[in-house]
Computed example of a mutant assay.
Amino acid sequence: MNTAPVPTPIGEGLKAAFRTHPAGVAIITANTPDGPVGLTASSVASVAVDPAAIVFSVTRATGSAGAILAADSFVVHLIDDDHSALAQTFAVSGSERFTTEQGWATLPTGEPHLAEARVALRCRPIQTVPVGSSTVVIAEVLEVLPGTAGRPLVYLDRRFHPLPHDTHL
């Protein structure tokens, strides 16, 4: 029997703390035997440069998250404000995804690719670590695909927010 985790005061406090901690926004995509899958993530961070590696987490191992966990490779798109509506689309199950109008193409290696993203990182999983109802993914970056830089986008208090154009990162 699979039961949902019971909220604890510390867990609720952690969620409240991170609602006020801005995070970058990414769309993670993979190709599967059933077609392309993707999700929006705000947990992406760099881990190392030699080997080049990143980390992110997904909150369940079903649906798009489960498909990405099972994939041999995936692409992490670091996106800007121009793609905030697309990020919202990939955050909601059942939304229309991977249309030509949204700007998707397919890499020679088979993964869905949003060429207009600030940068895309083609990766392969190195290790996954289950933590409660989440899974942490450590991935090696195989390829860095530069795109088009726009206004940076952050996730804060359950909403997407653009940063000013003159923000120097």
Rank of each mutant, 00 (worst) to 15 (best):
L107S: 05
E12H: 00
E12R: 02
P36I: 11
P7R: 07
T100L: 11
R151Y: 11
P108W: 03
A105S: 15
L142D: 10
A52C: 14
T148V: 15
T32E: 03
L14K: 08
S133T: 13
A85I: 12
S43R: 02
Q88T: 13
A70C: 07
A149V: 12
R159D: 13
L107P: 00
S42W: 02
T109Q: 09
L121T: 06
I68L: 14
T20P: 00
P33A: 15
I10G: 07
I68R: 03
L145T: 12
D80N: 08
P5D: 10
V37E: 04
E101W: 11
G13L: 04
A26I: 02
T106P: 06
A120I: 15
A149N: 08
A16V: 01
I27A: 01
A26N: 04
T32W: 00
A53M: 15
A71R: 00
G132Y: 06
P162K: 07
S93M: 03
G66H: 01
A85T: 14
L78H: 09
F74S: 07
A17N: 03
H21T: 07
A17M: 13
V76S: 06
L145V: 14
R159T: 15
H21G: 02
F90K: 00
A61H: 07
T40E: 06
F74V: 09
D166K: 04
T40C: 08
P130R: 12
L121S: 06
V47Q: 08
I79A: 09
V47E: 05
A85L: 13
A115G: 03
P162N: 06
P112F: 01
K15A: 11
L107K: 03
A67L: 02
A26Q: 01
P9V: 08
P5E: 12
P36F: 09
K15N: 09
I68W: 02
K15H: 09
V47D: 03
A30T: 13
A4S: 13
G38W: 02
V25C: 01
L121A: 07
P36D: 05
T32Q: 06
L86G: 03
P33G: 14
S133P: 05
P22A: 13
A23R: 06
V47S: 07
A17D: 03
D50K: 05
D166F: 11
A67T: 03
V75S: 02
P162R: 10
R159Q: 15
G110P: 02
G110S: 06
D82N: 15
G103W: 07
T59L: 10
N31I: 14
V129A: 07
I79T: 07
I27Y: 01
D157G: 09
P130D: 13
A53E: 05
V49P: 02
L14Q: 05
I54W: 00
H77T: 12
